[in-house]
């Protein structure tokens, strides 16, 4: 039987992959994807705990996280599109207008 600790283990690994992805990659689109991986890892954690406690709150939170993630993806990708139009790049290293 795979218990809560197994799910926590997998969720932790997924979250780490996402976090390292955000730090390492320069492609803005892939960075957004890595953020999605992190959100998903958290969702898995929420559900594992909800199952352990037999409560519905965890599932409700996952529902909310998904809604926010969808809105975040839409806004984020609109930013990518706008950024590419103005700067002709999606490499985050080249987006340094704010650096004096």
């Amino acid at each position: 039987m795979a218990g809560p600790s197994s799910y926590m283990f997998v969720a932790a690994i997924l979250f780490l992959i996402g976090a390292v992805g955000v730090v390492v990659r320069r492609d803005l689109i892939v960075i957004l994807m890595a953020v999605e991986i992190m959100l998903n890892a958290v969702n898995l954690q929420f559900l594992a705990f909800a199952r352990q406690l037999g409560q519905s709150e965890g599932q409700v939170f996952v529902f909310m996280v998904m809604v926010v993630a969808a809105a975040e993806a839409a806004i984020g990708l609109a930013f990518v599109l706008l950024l590419y139009r103005t700067r002709k790049t999606i490499n985050v290293d080249n987006i340094n207008l704010m650096r004096g």
Binding site: M1, A2, G3, P4, S5, S6, M8, F9, A12, I13, L16, I17, A19, V20, V23, V24, R51, Q52, L53, G54
Partner: peptide, 25 residues
């Protein structure tokens, strides 16, 4: 970033290593 990830992974592997126990009913 990668180094941090590797260290954190080792830490997590030690901390959260899957046990045999299952879920509560």
């Amino acid at each position: 970033g990668v180094a941090f990830g590797a260290v954190a992974l080792l830490f997590l592997a030690g901390k959260f290593f899957p046990t045999k126990e299952g879920f509560m009913p």
